[in-house]
Amino acid sequence: EALDLGTCKAKKKNGEPCTQTVNLRDCEYCQYHVQAQYKKLSAKR
């Protein structure tokens, strides 16, 4: 099993862990959760 392949560390809205696979060398979170957090933070400017 590849060491750099894993699952997203974020949690879904219902509290369950996200099940998307990610490349851990790039980021610990999937694209969906990265974009969601970016939108959330950019709205606070």
Rank of each mutant, 00 (worst) to 15 (best):
Q31P: 08
K39F: 04
L3C: 00
Y29W: 11
E1S: 02
H33G: 02
H33C: 06
L24E: 15
L5D: 06
K39A: 13
V22L: 07
C27L: 10
R25V: 07
C18W: 01
Q20F: 00
Y32T: 14
Y38D: 15
K12M: 14
D26Q: 08
V22P: 02
D4M: 10
E16V: 03
Y29H: 13
A36M: 11
Q20N: 11
A36C: 04
T19I: 03
K9P: 02
V34I: 03
S42H: 06
Q37C: 10
K40G: 12
V34R: 08
A36W: 03
K9E: 10
C18F: 00
Q35Y: 03
D26T: 08
C8T: 01
A43M: 04
C8V: 00
C8F: 00
D26C: 11
D4S: 05
L24H: 12
C8R: 00
Q37H: 02
C18A: 02
N23Q: 14
Q35V: 10
H33M: 02
L41V: 10
K39H: 13
D4L: 03
Q20M: 06
Q35E: 14
Q35P: 09
Y38K: 11
E28K: 05
S42E: 15
L3K: 15
N23D: 14
N14D: 00
D4W: 00
Q35R: 07
C8S: 01
G6Q: 01
E16T: 08
L3G: 11
G6D: 10
R25Y: 02
K40F: 04
G15E: 00
T21S: 11
K40D: 13
V22A: 08
K39T: 14
L41Q: 15
A36N: 09
Q20D: 08
A36G: 11
Y32P: 10
A36V: 11
L5P: 12
D4Y: 03
C18K: 01
N23A: 11
T19Q: 08
P17A: 06
Y38I: 11
G15V: 02
G6Y: 04
Y29S: 05
L5M: 04
N14P: 01
T7V: 07
T21G: 12
K12H: 09
E28V: 09
T19H: 07
N23I: 07
C27W: 06
N23L: 07
L3T: 03
Q20W: 05
A2K: 14
N14R: 01
C30K: 00
K13E: 07
Y38W: 09
V22K: 06
Q37K: 07
C27D: 12
D26I: 04
Q35T: 13
C8E: 02
S42I: 08
H33E: 03
D26A: 13
R25L: 05
Q35L: 06
V22C: 04
E16M: 12
A36Y: 03
L24F: 09
